[in-house]
Structure formats: structure tokens, C-alpha cells
Write a protein that binds this DNA or RNA. Structure first.
Lengths: 250, 250
DNA sequence: GCAAATTTGTCCGTATGTATC
DNA sequence: AGATACATACGGACAAATTTG
């Protein structure tokens, strides 16, 4: 069997699965494939890269976890969306695992969320136009309406708001990171085991205050805007704090 | 064979591999394991979770890619370090794949790197003590010495500098993200295919200026400090720009 | 330093589930 | 509905790496 040969030729240093993974990535890069483009079947990859189906499958699974590759059962393997899903899953697990550590992981996370919006305040205001402002107001209205409604509407509007807030920067990475941390926060907080305050009216008001400040300040002073953002994150931080104190008391 | 039974009972919806992955994560959480703690062997997991060893292995590989689990050949499986390695690998691949898109991925990345340090400037300065300052100066001296030396010393000092700069914040997540983006930048730029300027003397000077500004400003005005950071990232941005222009011209 | 034991790595063959035509 | 192509899952065998006696 020739595969044994290849095994010998590899001089035993790195793992075959690792080489297969590199091979698949190289294939995508050399052929300049885009997200959604089809990849060769597992059998073809197996033959081309000189590894068994099992090794190819394990390699594909690691790339799938990073969203470099996407597998559709009974259909085929494709180039992945290259999203930050791996970051979300990793940080979510970290947040769940280290609840004991004074919930520091989560409070650090809120710091980062605030950093994205406060640190980019100036640039957000200068590139914000009236269309964006209108869309932001619309989302706040959506939150207002779906408040104490079915449920999913409120959080979805919240998520969309923070995506839209940094959108005028034209920096996709910041937008994706911002959403990734929003996702982690939203997933982890309900698992903290204690009931935390969740004043939806206050949340709506805080979001509206951000848009109001943006509308007023526009290209002028950014202080009111950054203050509004800080006030928005105060209750977010408080929820983590409440969970921490309840956990320490219990 | 009873495994066939389980397959039926799952009603064919979710994937077995996925369930195994969830099972392993649940095991870690319920037993409150920490990074480095040993996990059951593949055979044991296979028996406990009611799946074949192949399926367990594939599930373990996805968790390994997220650094939730760490596998050591011939030794065993352990709880992972929960690092941001998946983010680095994912963004690196994204940067390599979308070179054509005017290198926007990389310029967005530099924006984020600068955001971490500029956006946290105030908090960095207020919690910076003389020990930190001395350590920062020492790293700049290291860079100066290893300039045009063996090679690895320079970049390593650069990496350590940016880690140390945000360290006084006490926010581990920001430190890890900062390093993750530094890693991606350092890995991707050499692959951009064109020789970009790499003035090490200028780099040293820019880093020293940051520490000088921090030393002078301390708890006072942050303007000089943020300006020094901006000046540091100007040449970093220029390298990406040069690669872009060379690519467009060629 | 050798040998045995343990654990992960790789391979193969086969059967089943899933989507498309 | 049938046929085809593909991924999913299984089980067993052997190779390679690591630890231990």
C-alpha cells in the first residue's frame, strides 16, 4: 500500500492530518476560491493528498470548526464563510467554564464591547449620515414595540442596533467583532444561574439616548455621544455584577 | 448492535458528532475541569457517549481546533488553554485569501490594533506605574540591540511591547486580542508577495516615543500619548498600502 | 537502555443517511 | 420513484508516540 510509503517519506515529524489541512487551505488559495465555491469530494482529496478518508475527514472537521470549510451532508464540501463563529464558540465556553473567577471573563468582555463604540466615537460621528440616523431610530422604535412582546424581536433589534452603530466606519472586522462579543454576552449571561435585572424600558431609553446624542453632536463635540454609550453599558455591566454578587452570597 | 438504536432514537436531526462535542463540553463544565486537566480516553468517551471511536475523534478534532481540548499523541486528551488561536488561524486565512480585495482585511486589522491602544489610552496612563514604564523602556532597548541582529529577537520584543502596553488595564481579553491581531499581521504581511519597507530604526524610534509620551503625560494629558500611538501605526499602515499599490501596478 | 503498556494516529471495508436529478 | 453521488457512522486492525518498570 503506497500510503504507508508516504507516511515514511514524511519522516514522521508533523501529523498527516495537519498536512492534509494545510493541503486543503493551499488548494483554496492557489485556485483563488471564494466562500461558497465547491471543493473536491472527500474521496478525491483522499487520493490527491495521499491520505485515507478518515484523515481527510478529521482535517476537514478542524477546518469546518474555523469556518474555513463548510460541509453539507449528502451534498458536498465548500469554502466556508470565514466568519468569527469559532471566536464566539471559544469565548462562550470560556465564559461558562470560568464563572467562578468572579465572572471576570464577562466583565472584560463588556469592556471590549464598549471600547469598540467609544473608541471609534469620533469616526462614527463624522461618517454618520441622516440615512443611518433614521435607521438607528427605526431600530429603537422596533425595540420599543417588541418590548415585552414575543421575545426574539427585542434582542434581534438590539443586535442589529450595535451592528448598525459601527457600520459607517466601513470596517467589516470591527462590525463582526462587535457582533461576536454581543453574541457571547447574550448566550452566556442567561447561563450565569441567577436572575439578573432586565429592565427593557431602560434599555430602550439608553439606546434612544445614544441616537439622540449622535443626532445633536453630529460632527461637533463627541462628549455627549461617548457619555451616552457609557450610560448604555452601565446596566450591562451591572447585570454581570449582580450575577457575581449573587454567586458569592449563595 | 445498540449504536444503531441510538441512531434511530436521535430521530436523525442533529449530527451525532455534534452531540458528542456537546457531551464533551458538558463533561468539562459539570466536572469543573481546568485547562490542563485530563479527559477520558477516546475509548472511554466512545463507550460513555454511545458513539464509535471515529465519531469521537472527529468531535475531538473540532474542539481541538477551538483550543477547548488539547490532544497529545500517545499521551492523552486534556482540557485546552482556551486561547484565541482559532481567531488567529481564521483571520490569517481570511487575510491570505482576500489579497485581491485591495488588502482591505489587513487595513481593517490595523485599525483594530490601533483602536485597542488609542481607545484605552486614558485608562492605560492612569494605571501605569514606574515598573511598567521601566519594563517598556527595557523592551525598546532590546529592540534597539537586536536590530539587524539574528532576527527573531526584534519581532519578539515588538510583540512583547504591545502586550505589556495594554497589560496595566488588567483586562486579559484585550491583551489576548491585541496579541492575536499582532500575530495575524506578522504572519500575513510577508505573504503579500511584495517587498514592503521595513525600517527597523524608525520602528524603534516610534516605540520609544510612545514610552516617552507615557512617561511625560503620566496621569495628565493623553494627547501626546495618543499621538505617539497614531505615529506608530502610520508606517504599519503604510506597509499594507505599499503592498496594495504594488499589487495593483503589477 | 530495553520492553511492555497505554493512548492517540492512520488505514480499510462496509453500511446508512441525505440531497439531487 | 429510482438512481446516483456524497457525507455520516461503524468496527477492527495496525502504526507511532509516550510513559513506566
Amino acid at each position: 500500500m503506497e500510503s504507508r510509503q508516504i507516511l515514511k517519506e514524511r519522516q514522521g515529524r508533523s501529523l498527516l492530518r495537519q498536512e492534509v489541512s494545510e493541503g486543503i487551505k493551499r488548494y483554496i488559495l492557489e485556485n483563488k476560491l471564494r466562500p461558497g465555491d465547491p471543493l473536491p469530494t472527500e474521496s478525491e482529496l483522499s487520493a490527491t493528498l495521499g491520505a485515507s478518508r478518515s484523515s481527510v475527514r478529521e482535517a476537514v472537521k478542524t477546518l469546518d470548526a474555523l469556518d474555513i470549510v463548510e460541509v453539507r451532508h449528502g451534498h458536498g464540501t465548500y469554502v466556508g464563510r470565514l466568519s468569527l463563529s469559532a471566536l464566539v464558540e471559544g469565548l462562550t465556553f470560556r465564559g461558562l467554564l470560568s464563572r467562578d473567577d468572579d465572572f471576570k471573563v464577562m466583565s472584560d468582555l463588556v469592556d471590549v464591547r464598549e471600547l469598540f463604540e467609544r473608541g471609534m466615537a469620533e469616526r462614527i460621528l463624522t461618517s454618520l449620515d441622516s440615512d443611518h440616523l433614521r435607521s438607528l431610530y427605526r431600530l429603537v422604535d422596533d425595540m420599543e414595540r417588541s418590548k415585552s412582546g414575543d421575545g426574539t424581536g427585542f434582542v434581534e433589534a438590539d443586535r442589529a442596533f450595535h451592528a448598525l452603530l459601527v457600520e459607517p466606519l466601513g470596517n467589516e472586522l470591527i462590525g463582526q467583532l462587535s457582533l461576536a462579543f454581543w453574541d457571547v454576552y447574550t448566550i452566556v449571561v442567561p447561563h450565569l444561574g441567577v436572575i439578573t435585572s432586565k429592565d427593557e424600558a431602560e434599555t430602550v431609553a439608553n439606546h434612544r439616548r445614544i441616537v439622540d446624542a449622535a443626532h445633536a453632536a453630529h460632527a461637533g463635540d463627541t462628549d455627549a455621544f461617548t457619555r451616552a454609550i457609557a450610560e448604555h453599558y452601565a446596566p450591562v455591566r451591572r447585570r454581570v455584577q449582580e450575577a457575581r454578587e449573587a454567586d458569592a452570597a449563595g
